[in-house]
Design a protein around this nucleic acid. Structure first.
Length: 454
RNA sequence: GUGGUUGUAGCUCAGUUGGUUAGAGUGCCUGAUUGUGGUUCAGGAAGUCGCCGGUUCGAACCCGGUCUCCCACCCCA
């Protein structure tokens, strides 16, 4: 067989030991906070039935689904004329499974399917990879991990508040400066009603989402293109211009949207969440951002997005409330709310800021130089004692040249090297070298141990 | 999915108008130093120039395709 150059598919990556140590640090931190708030883990399959996935993420989302080819002679079962078949229709005939696009929709499916085993409110977390057939860029992968927390079966806004607390804790623990942007789909719907274009709701949200990126003028152009009247667009302006504190924005908004029942409901929801937030001793900033829309169509209430303040990489966490996701699987009137942490982007942020704690690379504290068979046998019990005392230690596995062994210790940042040769064995002492200062001294094993008990 | 961009030693990158044997820094290996790393000095190994094809007497360089990376759009973690 011809030798092939090894490679992984576009947008996917291998992770080396160093990367995994750092990734696990992120996962463990996130998981720890989830557990602290009483959430329990679940997992779902990498593949879902395509019918479970399609239609949940909007047209764009459907295009980004990875589809899995049916097994066997899938073409023989195709009914369409292959010479003029549309790809999108043909896909449904030759593929009935797809890789999951997020963890929220599979979770909704899970809830409905396992209803009898679940007590509401159901608090679950789920940390698994998801796949999107997007074109990769920095901070944008085709396979990436999401860390979801959701509580389903409770309308209480206390859940929204709890999510904010969770976000606060996680980013505090990871030492990332972040800001939570908060909005509410009901407010956006109210705005669409207020300007007299409720049926253009999706177009409006998608356009105003880009406000801080492309500016007011371009947004207006896009809205015009989508068929909004110039009048409607003019009415949007004061809403974009809203400034001041969260409370000030809400007061103004309440006046503007006073005739929209939905809008007022959204304002009240946001107000409640913000009022809770202000009574809590949290570190993170919470910004009411009316231009936050989020593309996922299943959100109905609060929407969140978290951005790192010090790195431009898009959102590192996002989510919101969905009132009818389970409805699509036949379970009505069960509302849920949750957020998803993007582990890969969080990694990129931490890497760029160089804020991974040194100690997570649990490195060796003591290395014994290997001088040969007799010395090995002499050192092994000492090594055992160090380990029993919780000191990470190792012996170089071969009696290589000193230079090689010392270089190894140096590159691995091992702070203490112990040399035990014939001399030391006869005297019952160890030569202990401090690799930072370069000093070395003879001492007993107990004296070495004492160095660590300080 | 649309448009653009990148790919040369393990890593970061030079490489002239197409012209003999493709370079540098860093890392690695060896020695100066047989039981002493991190500094210094001397030496050494290392490249199908992303891949496939074409043009040409001759291609890292020009052309086509393809893969990958990155950027913008779209969308998003």
């Amino acid at each position: 067989m011809a030798v092939q150059k090894p490679s992984v598919p576009k947008g996917t990556r291998d992770f080396s030991p160093i990367e995994m140590v750092k990734r696990n640090y992120i996962f463990d931190t996130i998981k720890g906070v989830f557990k602290r708030f009483g959430y329990l883990p679940i997992e779902t399959p990498s593949m879902e039935n395509l019918s479970t996935l399609t239609g949940k993420y909007g047209d764009e989302g459907d295009k980004l689904l990875f589809k899995v080819l049916n097994s066997g002679d899938y073409l023989s079962k195709v009914k369409s004329d292959l010479t003029k078949a549309e790809s999108s229709k043909l896909a449904l005939e030759i593929s009935e499974k797809g890789l999951r696009y997020d963890l929220t929709v599979p979770f909704a499916r899970f809830v409905v399917q396992h209803l009898s085993e679940i007590t509401f409110p159901f608090k679950r977390y789920q940390i698994q990879p998801v796949w999107r057939a997007d074109r990769p860029q920095k901070g944008r992968y085709r396979e990436f991990y999401q860390c979801d927390v959701d509580v389903i079966g409770s309308n209480s806004l206390l859940n929204e508040v709890e999510l904010i607390q969770i976000i606060d804790q996680i980013f505090q623990k990871l030492n990332i400066n972040a800001v939570i942007k908060l909005n509410n789909r009901k407010i956006l719907l109210g705005i669409a009603e207020y300007i007299g274009e409720p049926e253009k709701f999706i177009d409006i949200t998608v356009a105003i989402d880009k406000l801080d990126k492309i500016g007011l003028e371009k947004v207006n152009e896009e809205l015009l293109l989508k068929g909004l009247s110039a009048d409607s667009i003019e009415k949007l302006k004061p809403i974009f211009d809203l400034a001041g504190t969260n409370q000030e924005k809400l007061t103004l908004l309440r006046e503007i949207l006073k005739d929209s029942e939905t809008g007022i409901k959204g304002i009240e929801e946001v107000e409640t969440v913000i009022n809770y937030f202000e009574t809590l001793p949290l570190n993170i900033d919470l910004d009411l951002d009316l231009t936050l829309a989020r593309g996922l169509n299943y959100y109905t209430g609060a929407i969140f997005e978290v951005k790192a303040k010090d790195v431009a990489i898009g959102s590192i966490c996002g989510g919101g409330r969905y009132d009818d996701l389970t409805g699509m699987f036949g379970l009505k009137d069960v509302s849920g709310v949750g957020v998803s942490f993007g582990a890969d982007r969080i990694y990129d942020v931490m890497e760029q800021l160089n804020i991974f704690p040194d100690e997570i690379v649990a490195s060796t504290k003591v290395m014994f130089v290997n001088f040969g068979d007799k010395e090995e046998k002499y050192c092994l019990p000492l090594l055992q004692k160090l380990r029993d005392n919780g000191i990470n230690s190792e012996i170089f596995p071969e009696s290589s040249k000193m230079k090689k062994q010392m270089t190894y210790a140096n590159n691995k940042n091992i702070p203490i090297v112990v040399l035990v040769g014939e001399d030391e064995m006869n005297k019952g002492l160890l030569t202990v070298k401090d690799m930072v200062s370069g000093d070395q001294a003879e001492m007993t094993f107990d004296e070495l141990l004492n160095k660590f008990s300080l």
